[in-house]
Structure formats: structure tokens, C-alpha cells
Write a protein that binds this DNA or RNA. Structure first.
Lengths: 149, 149
DNA sequence: CCTATGTCAGCACGACTGATATTC
DNA sequence: CGAATATCAGTCGTGCTGACATAG
């Protein structure tokens, strides 16, 4: 039962199960994001701006989308008054995107509300289940990082 | 550190982390599904038809979407010759959707190819990581079931 | 001159709501 | 007649590619 002996079968089975779980989770995430005033893509983008200012290309990379898609979201956020675009002082080709004061509260409340809903779901699990989930999250994070490289 | 003492804080933290992992995974799934000839929604639908015949409403429920959205996918699959719609003999309001012979091979190959890609990603993990992931998948399945109820 | 960064234009996909048969 | 099932029509959100302007 060491690594070299069962590459194909067990690995494929795990991959299949993981794919299935993720597929279902996509719809779960959709539900979770459906009720808010901020869309999933917008909230993700805004959360990225909490620091000092982020370039469009970096936003795109972090979101896993192309630059034009990021630009589109940013423009929407700007029109909504939640984000601001400024020229980068060091590189005039670049644009630095920052969160406006008006954007702070919405991002916090939208984030909190969704997390609370999710916490409600998790509260119905057993301690064991929650422990298993917590143990797997870093692994999933590593998988995601691999694919985004 | 027992359950009763830390309902809010730890639970919210776990929920937040889980949300983040899922958000990233959405983009991961997008990449995984981007290269194939069958879209993610279409493959999911087709895999559901492997049995005897499924009603449109049931497909919609399993996919976590509304009935019109399911109808749309089914019509596309029908036009592609991969699925077939027949009246339900027991209930003339209903439509039973089945996989055609021509649909068998594409669904198998598309599924296999994506699973193989995922297996490739998982192969770079440690045995421990894979074990943690495997242990969490049933939990995630339970969470998904909860939300779809 | 070539590359990097960002935006614009046009397109595709997939979900949704609301309205409409048809059948139970 | 009211409820259930499915479809149709129209809209919206979000991603993509290709073309472009501007700066390094």
C-alpha cells in the first residue's frame, strides 16, 4: 500500500470523487452568493483591495481570470463607488485599484453574512466532520495553488 | 476546547476558510473544464442519464438549477445527438431523458480525461495530504446535500 | 523596436424570471 | 379548478479572444 504500488486505480478514484464534490460545491457556492447585493466575483475582487492598492493584472491573476475580465469587474465596482482606479506613480502603464471608504462597509457585511450562512451549515456537522474538513482545507489550498501556477 | 465553548469564533473561522477554498476551487474547476468538447454543465447532465431515464425536474434538482436551465441544456444535448427526450408513459406531463448510444463514448472519454488531469494534480501531493482529502470528501458531500435540500 | 499593461468591442455560455401550454 | 411539469422568450452576469493605445 505504498505510493509506488497503486498509482493509477486509487488515484483516479480519489480524483473522480474530488471532481464530483467540487462540481456539487460549485452550485452550493452559487446559492450562497445568490442572495447578496454583491456578486461573488465582485466580493472576491473587493476583498483583494483591502491592502494598499492592487494592479489590474494582479487581480486577474489572483482571481484566475484574464485581464479584460478583471477590468470589467473593476469598472463596475468603480461605477458603484466601491473602488477607485488611480495611475501607478512608478509605472504609468499600470493602474492601481483601491477600495473606497464607501466600499468598506459593504464588503464587510456581505462577507460576514455569507460566512454566517456557511457557519450555520457547518454547525450541523459533528466535531469529527469539522475536524476532517479543517484538515483538508490546506490540502485543497495547495491543489488550487498548483493549478493557478 | 470542547464544542460548547467555542461555537461562534471557531465555526466562523472554519466557514471563512472553507468559503475561500471553494471560491478558488471554482476557478480550478473552470480550468479543468475549459479544454474539453463537452462543457461542465453538459457533462454533469449526461452523467446523470447513465441509468434508465431521468425527468427534467430531477435533473434540475440534481444540478442545483431551475427547470428552464435544465431544459436548455437538454435541448442542446439532444441537438448534438447525445441525449433523447421521450414522453413518460406513466405521467404525460413529464419527459424522460435518456442517453443515446452515440452519447456513451463522449461522456466516458470526457469524464476520463478530466479525471486524469485531476489525478495528475493529486499525484504531486503526499500520501498524508491525499488521506486528509479523502477523509473530507464525504463531509463535503454531506454539506452539499444539506444545501440542496 | 519589442514587450508589458490595460481597455474596448464583440461573442458565447449558462443561469434567471415571467408567461404559457398541457396534464394530473 | 388548482398544482405540477416542461417549454419558450427575453434578460443578465461573467468569462473569453482579438484589436488597440500607451508606456517601459
Amino acid at each position: 500500500m505504498n505510493t509506488a504500488e497503486k498509482p493509477a486505480a486509487a488515484l483516479q478514484a480519489l480524483a473522480q470523487d474530488f471532481r464530483d464534490a467540487l462540481r456539487q460545491s460549485v452550485y452550493l457556492v452559487r446559492r450562497l452568493d445568490a442572495d447578496g447585493d454583491l456578486s461573488a466575483a465582485q466580493l472576491s475582487t473587493l476583498k483583494m483591495l483591502l491592502g494598499d492598492g492592487v494592479r489590474v493584472g494582479e487581480i486577474a491573476r489572483n482571481l484566475g481570470v484574464r485581464v479584460p475580465s478583471a477590468t470589467e469587474q473593476i469598472i463596475k465596482l468603480e461605477r458603484a463607488g466601491l473602488a477607485r482606479r488611480e495611475p501607478d506613480p512608478d509605472d504609468s502603464r499600470a493602474v492601481r485599484v483601491t477600495l473606497t471608504d464607501a466600499g468598506l462597509a459593504p464588503v464587510a457585511s456581505a462577507n460576514e453574512r455569507r460566512t454566517t450562512v456557511m457557519a450555520g451549515v457547518l454547525s450541523s456537522l459533528s466535531d469529527e466532520d469539522r475536524a476532517a474538513l479543517a484538515a483538508a482545507l490546506p490540502v485543497i489550498g495547495r491543489i488550487n495553488a498548483t493549478l493557478l501556477a
